[in-house]
Amino acid sequence: MPAQSHSAGPSVTFDTVTKRYANGTLAVDGVSLEVAAGSFVALVGTSGSGKSTLLKMVNRLVEPTGGSIAIGGEPVDQVPAHLLRRRIGYVFQNIGLFPHLTVGENIAIGLRLRGEKHNDARVAELLDLIELPDDVAGRRPDALSGGQRQRVGVARALAIKPGLMLMDEPFGALDPVTRDTLGHAVRRLHGTLGLTTIMVTHDMAEALLFADRVLVMQHGRIVADATPHEMLSGAGGEAADALVAVPREQAHALAKIEAGE
C-alpha cells in the first residue's frame, strides 16, 4: 500500500464483515473488500440489499456482528466512536442540518467539537467551495432550498478536512437538475481534495457517471465489482446487467429522439 500523503484519502479495508440485526435479519453477509486510497466507489443495490448498513459500519453508526474494518490500516474500533467520526465526512439523504443553528454554525459544528472557536473564515471558504453566497452563513437551514441544504450538508462534512467521505444516497431527495449539478460538484471536490469517497445509491446511472468503481450488492453480498466502462460492456455479470440495462436503454431512446428517428 502506498504511503498516504496529506491530501490523499485513506484506503478502507473490509474483512469478512457481517451484520445480523437483533431480529435475525442478515443485512451484511461476510463482505471482504479493499477500497483503494483516493478512489470514488459507488455501492449500488435495491433497498434492503445491505449497502447502507455496510457504509454505516465504516463510521460505526452500526456496529458489525462479525469481521473487521480498517481505515488506512487502522481498525475502526481502536478509537472511541465519536473521535473516529470526527475524522470522517458523512453526508446522508435526509441531511439532518441542526434547525436551531445557523448555516454557518452547522458547517462549523465539527470544528467546534474539536474545540476550535473562530471558524468564520473557514465557513466562508467552504461556502465558496460548494458555490453558495457568503450571506447564507447567518441564515437558518429552513430558509434554504432542498439543494442548498444538501450543499450545506456537504460543506459540514468537508469542514473537518476529512480524508474519507461517506455518502448515503446524498442526492436522493433532490430534483434531477440539482442532483446533476451537485453530483458534478461532489465529484470535482473529490478530485481536488484528494478524497476517498464511498457513495451509496440505488441509482445505477448516478453510480456510472460519478464513480471510478461500481459495486453491486444483493442480499448482503457483493455480486458485482467493476469499473463503469466494464459494467456497460456487460462484464459486471447478471445482476449488474439488469441494473445497467435501464439507464442504457433510456440513453438509447433519448439519443433516437434527439436524432429525430
Partner: peptide, 27 residues
C-alpha cells in the same frame, strides 16, 4: 425529534452528552 438530526449529531461525532446539550435540549 427528527431522527435525521439525531443521526447527524452522531455522524459529526458528538458524544451522548454533547448531543443532549447541543441538539436535544435546545430542540
Amino acid at each position: 425529534l427528527d431522527p435525521a438530526v439525531l443521526q447527524a449529531a452522531d455522524g459529526v461525532g458528538m458524544t451522548a452528552r454533547q448531543k443532549l446539550w447541543m441538539v436535544e435540549a435546545p430542540l
